[in-house]
């Protein structure tokens, strides 16, 4: 779960406002699509329910789980939508699909596969990423060592200055924080 504790009240308000705006757009577009393509929308709504759930559960900014589950879930839903489009595109036909246990099993199994993929693959990828980062850090350290051998320790002056400034800033923040705390 993403924590919003580090966001300021203004940022939170902005986020809420944007969320309301998106919901409005979704409702408008959804209503429009429901009017012109009601059978497709019925199949999509019931078939993509796991994605909706994933979207609700997934509070991350990137919405990776939603995209992953949604994309795989859609693979399960899409053949039935195509059947609607190529055969009888009616609400009855759509209701037939959503009440067909096998069809729903296919759609939800696809979603489940999506979830499975999302549960397992990131860990494996993260291990690779960690190894790659460590190699990159070692390479950069090697470059720095070569620079120090050629130019002496003073080549790190900019970094030292930056660190000192950060320390000073930290101290100042600490002092003002203490003062704020004491005054508060």
């Amino acid at each position: 779960m993403v924590k919003h504790s580090n966001l300021s009240p203004e940022q939170l308000e902005e986020r809420r406002r944007r969320g309301r705006s998106n919901l409005t757009w979704i409702l408008v577009v959804g209503t429009f699509l429901l009017v012109i393509a009601a059978p497709t929308m019925i199949v999509l709504f019931f078939g993509m329910l796991p994605t909706l759930v994933a979207s609700i559960i997934d509070r991350s900014d990137q919405k990776s789980a939603t995209f992953c589950v949604g994309a795989i879930n859609f693979i399960g839903v899409f053949p039935y939508i195509l059947d609607l489009w190529f055969d009888l595109n009616s609400i009855d036909a759509a209701l037939n699909f959503v009440t067909d246990l096998f069809a729903m099993l296919v759609m939800y199994s696809a979603a489940a596969f999506g979830w499975l993929l999302f549960m397992t693959m990131p860990t494996v990828v993260a291990s690779f990423v960690t190894v790659l980062q460590q190699r990159k850090v070692a390479q950069l350290r090697g470059e720095q060592k070569t620079l120090i051998e050629e130019w002496g320790a003073e080549v790190a002056a900019l970094v030292e200055i930056e660190r000192t400034e950060q320390r000073e800033q930290h101290m100042e923040d600490g002092v003002s924080g203490m003062a704020y705390k004491n005054n508060g």
Binding site: S60, Q62, V69, I72, F74, L82, A126, Q133
Partner: peptide, 24 residues
Amino acid sequence: ALQTGERFTAVVGVILGMISVTVI
């Protein structure tokens, strides 16, 4: 690293979905 993995997985899922849709 985990976030990177999640993003990567999402991309893989989307690509898989697109390929599947095309094939279907």
